[in-house]
């Protein structure tokens, strides 16, 4: 009986249509830079930005570096504004750079998606995650992507224990020296064809740890990256949206 009471209150937890979900206004998603922002202001923001993600003329913001602290929005009195758009996935590193006046949603470059990804992984994608210096927040969000609320298992996406069972690698963390060999071993153990997903600004650019002598990021220079997912950490919806657009389960919008 106790279980029944608890179940009734638990209710239906899963979000029926993940494509329609909007996050609260205050969520820090895709930023927009107003045309009113002057170059000298941009210069000030460039100096302020702790990860040097802000370029000056025209003002730009590199979401691969951005750690979403929102200080530039506070200091520019909203001329840079973080919207609640969590759809941040791209498959080309340059597409993470937002330029002044740009307000169109991010999309994947269809031409760059390898043919086999859509043929093989559209309805079943097994991923092996490796944390290489991740701070455990991105890791927890990736776990959450499979929980009762987001339930990405319904789309055939699953994290697996063995790289031998995986179709791809999801990396979090800035890639430490001490983890670089294990990361390589894991990648080598995944059968081809395989994809690489970078989850979080830490792994895309080093994030707040960029330039640390304790990192060894050579791995990323060796292989093509199929999906960049900015965030600190990556929101589960950002992850699910990005992956389903990559595989073509959701047509890229």
């Amino acid at each position: 009986m106790k279980e029944l009471t608890i179940f009734r209150q638990h209710g239906r937890q899963f979000i029926p249509d993940l494509q329609k979900v909007e996050l609260p206004e205050i969520f820090r998603g895709r930023p927009v830079i107003s045309n009113d922002l002057l170059p000298e202001e941009a210069g000030r923001l460039h100096n302020l930005c702790p990860v040097k993600a802000i370029g000056i003329n025209p003002c730009s913001l590199d979401l691969g570096k951005c750690i979403f602290c929102k200080e530039c929005e506070f200091q520019s009195l909203g001329k840079i504004k973080f919207t609640n758009d969590y759809r941040l996935a791209v498959n080309s590193r340059d597409d993470l750079i937002i330029v002044q006046g740009m307000s169109n949603p991010f999309q994947l470059d269809r031409k760059k998606i390898r043919e086999e990804i859509r043929v093989l992984f559209k309805h079943a994608l097994k991923l092996r995650q490796v944390s290489a210096g991740g701070d455990n927040s991105s890791e927890m969000e990736l776990n959450a992507a499979g929980n009762v609320n987001f339930d990405m298992g319904r789309f055939g996406i699953e994290f697996v224990a063995s790289p031998r069972h995986a179709d791809g690698l999801v990396i979090t963390g800035p890639i430490t020296q001490n983890m670089s060999a294990a990361l390589q071993l894991c990648y080598d153990a995944i059968p081809a064809p395989k994809i690489i997903i970078l989850a979080g600004s830490d792994v895309i650019s080093g994030g707040i740890f960029s330039g640390s002598p304790a990192l060894e990021r050579g791995f990323l220079e060796k292989y093509p990256v199929d999906l960049y997912l900015p965030g600190n950490p990556v929101h589960p919806l950002t992850f699910i949206h990005g992956v389903l657009n990559l595989t073509g389960y959701w047509s890229s919008k």
Partner: peptide, 30 residues
């Protein structure tokens, strides 16, 4: 040791208060 990112060193290396504040919240994200 696999997760070593050199954080104590970075606190001294970059003394911008904002940088240090963000570093502190990324020591362990949980």
């Amino acid at each position: 040791g696999f997760q070593h990112r050199g954080i104590e060193h970075l606190f001294v290396e970059n003394q911008q208060l904002l940088y240090q504040s963000i570093l502190a919240e990324n020591i362990t994200g949980d």
